[in-house]
Design a protein around this nucleic acid. Structure first.
Length: 227
DNA sequence: TAACACCTGTTC
DNA sequence: GAACAGGTGTTA
């Protein structure tokens, strides 16, 4: 199993030693998708699986795809590239601070909107876009191209630090997110701005504000994220 | 580039 | 009953 951006890629093969067919099952969970795996013959996981949309019988295991909102996608591909976004993964060794700066230089959009573009940087979603900008002390409305070298450096370090920590804690659960083991995400208690409108900023005590950019909520501290 | 659509549920 | 929700492909 691999991950590229937000795509989960599962390598499948079938056939005999002489002729093996290999494919990638590329899964995008979107908003409410969930992958569950249960050993073949064990029905308990399957009984609990609400909103079951796909059921794959593999050798020794059954893979279930559940998705309340039906936004998620499953694609069978010959290579991961067919399904993966074209942007760099935040953990790619190719992504240096200089490289990030070069990508940003052409960005006309607000930095928060730019961070969600999977064709530039692949993997950030709406929660972590706000969190990363708070950590880097950058106002979400700033044009991407306006960041100076110091700010790009702060953004670069915040990206990896926050995503690493979020992964360690199984992500963020607000209502229904669960990972493949049924664990809810524990990162919620580390959130500094997301869904915290009106609450005091952990750094300066100012009230966290919410604004809407391209129909999506952005949360930030108007006092310590500078324009 | 930005609005809208997709779908179903929860919260205000 | 309206607004909102972790995302992105299509349309204008």
């Amino acid at each position: 199993v691999q991950r590229v951006g937000k795509v989960v890629a599962i390598e499948l093969q079938r056939g005999t030693a002489r002729s093996i067919e290999r494919r990638w099952l590329c899964v995008h969970l979107r908003m409410t998708g969930r992958l569950l795996c249960s050993p073949a013959g064990e029905a308990s996981v399957e009984r609990k699986a609400r909103y079951l949309r796909a059921r794959l019988e593999l050798d020794g295991a059954v893979l279930l795809f559940c998705d309340l909102r039906r936004f998620g996608t499953l694609r069978l591909c010959r290579s991961i590239d067919e399904a993966a976004p074209t942007g760099l993964d935040p953990f790619s060794p190719e992504l240096t601070s200089q490289r990030l700066g070069a990508l940003l230089r052409n960005g006309k959009q607000a930095i928060k909107v730019w961070l969600l573009r999977q064709d530039r940087l692949a993997g950030l979603g709406n929660i972590y876009a706000s969190e990363v900008l708070f950590a880097a002390r950058i106002d979400p409305r700033r044009p991407a191209s306006s960041l100076d070298r110091t700010e790009v450096g702060r953004l670069y370090r915040a990206l990896r630090r926050i995503l690493n920590k979020a992964i360690q804690h199984c992500g963020t659960t607000f209502s229904d997110f669960q990972d493949s083991r049924g664990e809810i995400g524990g990162y919620r208690r580390f959130l500094k701005v997301y869904k915290r409108e009106g609450m005091p900023c952990a750094r300066c005590g100012e009230r966290i504000q919410r604004l809407v950019q391209q129909q999506r909520s952005t949360f930030y501290c108007p006092s310590c994220q500078t324009l």
